[in-house]
Nucleic acid binder design. Structure first.
Lengths: 201, 201
DNA sequence: ATTCGGTTAGTGGTCAGACCATTTTTTTAA
DNA sequence: TTAAAAAAATGGTCTGACCACTAACCGAAT
């Protein structure tokens, strides 16, 4: 007898929905049959249909609109990252590791920007003047400049976690100095300075 | 009036479960309260509880055993792979972002190992000989060697998502070469070689 | 006292049906 | 013709029921 024989209804439903999408060649924005229709067509209770839909909704594969229906949606792999991270981090939540990863990501971002030829650091918006959290807003802008959404998302996530367990802040003057180094094009010095800021932890 | 105001019950439940896990410091293998208990404690119907649990089950965060209960489980990014791949094959931009982040994380790992003085690359286990996925197993070992759990988990997460949308593999010989470079201590060359592997994408 | 076997309580798995909230469509009335 | 009202369709949620599986309990035979 096989060990993992029992396949749950909602799993079956997922497969059938998959096939349905392939058969009908549905793409982004297209509407799936209603939950009640699916219930009949796939021979499962509406509760099971919903369990399946809720699962792929959390994955970010569909979007539901009350009163309208269920729609395919552009897949965003990092849709559920927030949720995942909370679970993933439950054993790992040491302050040191968080800070280290955050630092490494930021340094990596600076390095990558340094390597890209068409980056003009002087374009950094002056909006930073009105910022309450210079560090976060500065790197938010840097990550956005680099352009990789996932990269930004991961950093943002780590940053959020740190702020929830550690409220210590760094003197603003440090970041003003860092910003000046960046804007004047001295990226290597900026990277060193950035590292020095973290060394105090 | 806000547009996305309505938060669904199952999403609330997910948050509450998250908090529960953190409060009670549950870890892999620990049991969650039964669905009926959760239903009472979290003030939601069992149906909603199940929608939440099914969702994170699909993500691979929990495991349910009929007649026993619901248990936390080591996160397995490979879990929902087949499902995702069918949905995801369109939309290339995110794939590129995923690959880029994966590459950057790996390069970062190599770089950090290079910087650490007490690392002896010759200690790389030969177990890799029996590997089905040289790349993954190699870097799994490297990340473990570096020792930052969070760093490893993030990489693992990204890797899992990538495998769900891209089954293309790289010739084993490339990794044998890479491993040789690492083991012989030529880390800088290894980093270059690693980059060259990714350039083909 | 020990062991075997059945009973029972707890748990996840599934379903049917009801009602609400929101949106769309249809019908009705001005 | 048009605007308001009603109806239908759809997702959101809850309740209660029943089944299948597991583990713990308990009594009877050894």
């Amino acid at each position: 007898m096989t060990n993992q024989s029992k396949v749950k209804v909602y799993q079956e439903v997922l497969n059938k929905i998959r096939h349905f999408i392939e058969e009908h060649e549905l793409t982004d924005g297209d509407r799936l049959p209603s939950e009640r229709e699916l219930s009949e067509q796939l021979n499962a209770s509406r509760a099971s249909i919903r369990e399946a839909l809720r699962a792929i909704e959390l994955l970010g594969l569909i979007e539901t609109r009350h009163g309208e229906g269920t729609f395919l949606r552009t897949y965003k792999p990092y849709h559920s990252v927030e949720l995942l991270s909370t679970f993933v981090l439950r054993e790992v939540k040491t302050k040191h590791e968080l800070l280290e990863v955050k630092f490494l990501l930021e340094q990596l971002c600076l390095n990558q920007l340094l390597l890209s030829e068409n980056w003009d650091p002087s374009n950094l918006r002056q909006v930073l003047d009105e910022s309450n959290d210079l560090h976060t807003d500065l790197f938010l802008q840097l990550f956005q400049t680099y352009g990789n959404q996932l990269f930004l998302k991961i950093w943002h996530l780590v940053t959020g976690f740190i702020q929830s367990i550690d409220t210590s802040t760094v003197k603003e003057t440090h970041y003003i100095e860092l910003i000046n180094l960046i804007k004047s094009g001295q990226i290597n010095q900026a990277i060193d300075y950035h590292a020095s800021i973290y060394r105090q932890f």
